[in-house]
Amino acid sequence: MDLGLNGKVAIVTGSARGLGAATARRLAEEGAKVIVADIDRDGTAASTESLRADGYQAIGIVSDITKSADVERLVADTVAAFGGIHVLVNNAGFPRDKLLTKLTEDDWDKVVEVILKGSFLTCKAVMPYMIEQRFGRIVNISSRAYLGNPGQANYAAAKAGILGLTRALAIEEGRYDITVNAIAPGFIETEAVMALGHYEQIKERAIAAQPLRRVGRPEDIADAVVFLASARASFITGETLHVTGGRYG
């Protein structure tokens, strides 16, 4: 099935590893020219080289998406390298889990800044190009955590904000054939999650709470991203696709 991604240019933030790296690879497999964007210099280089070694078109750009100058450079370098920008995947983010009484101002600021401000800055930077070409696909990675989790007030608030941003931009930009959608992953087995000391306990609780009795894989999210970025999803915008194994609460 042709997904209409061959030759398209896609930026994936936070793609040095985990969900972002899996997404960059799936887009590349569909023929997209991929920009691996991450603040981790070594991880960016490794992820990019892995794609190139398999014959895919990819460049790595080290950038801090919380800084507007870095984001503007990221987009300008993308256009200079590949001639345009068609797909943006806002994946960068991380948790700092603590109960509210122990949550510091820095814990709040850093999480919200990367997830929500970073997505705002990247969307704003790519939008003039997408408007001019009257085409664009933006996929924002939220989380099932937007429904609320104890110890994740900062993360849940940022991920809920992603949904509001998604809907607002979908309404604003639809007239230019730009779609903006979100994905809300559930428990996904990434390197970072597997490194947690209580990983097995988290895994058991997650599987018990969902109808599909297995953990999610990064490729599950990557497949959903590729669909929403594809020509097959051209009449879908402002939506949140839950990829949770059936878990909502």
Rank of each mutant, 00 (worst) to 15 (best):
residue 3 L to K: 12
residue 3 L to A: 02
residue 8 K to S: 04
residue 9 V to H: 02
residue 9 V to S: 01
residue 9 V to E: 00
residue 11 I to L: 07
residue 12 V to A: 06
residue 16 A to E: 00
residue 16 A to H: 01
residue 16 A to P: 11
residue 18 G to L: 03
residue 19 L to Y: 01
residue 20 G to M: 07
residue 24 A to W: 00
residue 30 E to Q: 13
residue 33 K to H: 10
residue 37 A to F: 03
residue 37 A to D: 10
residue 44 T to K: 02
residue 46 A to Y: 00
residue 48 T to F: 00
residue 48 T to M: 05
residue 49 E to N: 14
residue 49 E to D: 11
residue 50 S to F: 01
residue 51 L to W: 02
residue 53 A to R: 15
residue 53 A to V: 12
residue 54 D to P: 01
residue 56 Y to A: 06
residue 56 Y to V: 09
residue 57 Q to T: 13
residue 58 A to C: 08
residue 59 I to V: 14
residue 64 D to G: 09
residue 66 T to R: 13
residue 69 A to N: 12
residue 71 V to G: 01
residue 71 V to P: 01
residue 74 L to W: 05
residue 76 A to P: 04
residue 77 D to E: 15
residue 78 T to A: 08
residue 78 T to M: 00
residue 79 V to S: 10
residue 80 A to Y: 07
residue 83 G to L: 02
residue 85 I to C: 08
residue 87 V to Y: 01
residue 88 L to Y: 04
residue 89 V to Y: 06
residue 89 V to D: 04
residue 90 N to E: 05
residue 93 G to M: 00
residue 94 F to V: 06
residue 97 D to S: 13
residue 97 D to Y: 12
residue 98 K to E: 03
residue 98 K to N: 09
residue 99 L to V: 14
residue 99 L to M: 15
residue 99 L to G: 11
residue 100 L to I: 12
residue 100 L to V: 10
residue 101 T to R: 15
residue 104 T to G: 11
residue 105 E to P: 06
residue 106 D to Y: 03
residue 106 D to S: 11
residue 108 W to C: 07
residue 112 V to P: 01
residue 114 V to F: 06
residue 115 I to Y: 05
residue 115 I to W: 05
residue 116 L to I: 12
residue 119 S to D: 03
residue 119 S to K: 12
residue 124 K to N: 10
residue 125 A to Q: 05
residue 127 M to F: 08
residue 131 I to G: 03
residue 132 E to M: 11
residue 133 Q to C: 10
residue 136 G to K: 05
residue 136 G to A: 02
residue 137 R to G: 07
residue 137 R to V: 03
residue 140 N to F: 10
residue 145 A to T: 13
residue 146 Y to I: 06
residue 151 G to I: 09
residue 151 G to V: 08
residue 153 A to I: 11
residue 153 A to Q: 10
residue 156 A to T: 13
residue 162 I to V: 15
residue 162 I to N: 00
residue 163 L to M: 11
residue 169 L to W: 06
residue 170 A to S: 13
residue 171 I to F: 04
residue 171 I to T: 11
residue 173 E to Q: 15
residue 174 G to D: 09
residue 176 Y to W: 15
residue 176 Y to F: 15
residue 180 V to F: 05
residue 182 A to T: 09
residue 182 A to E: 05
residue 183 I to T: 14
residue 183 I to V: 12
residue 184 A to N: 04
residue 184 A to C: 10
residue 185 P to M: 13
residue 186 G to Q: 07
residue 189 E to Q: 13
residue 191 E to K: 08
residue 192 A to W: 04
residue 194 M to F: 01
residue 196 L to Q: 14
residue 198 H to G: 11
residue 202 I to C: 00
residue 206 A to F: 01
residue 206 A to E: 08
residue 208 A to S: 09
residue 216 G to K: 00
residue 219 E to D: 13
residue 220 D to I: 05
residue 220 D to M: 10
residue 221 I to S: 04
residue 221 I to N: 04
residue 221 I to R: 08
residue 221 I to V: 12
residue 222 A to R: 05
residue 223 D to S: 15
residue 223 D to E: 13
residue 226 V to I: 05
residue 227 F to Y: 15
residue 228 L to Q: 10
residue 229 A to C: 15
residue 231 A to R: 12
residue 231 A to M: 02
residue 232 R to F: 07
residue 233 A to G: 03
residue 234 S to Q: 14
residue 236 I to G: 05
residue 241 L to M: 13
residue 241 L to A: 09
residue 245 G to N: 08
residue 245 G to C: 05
residue 246 G to D: 11
residue 247 R to Y: 09
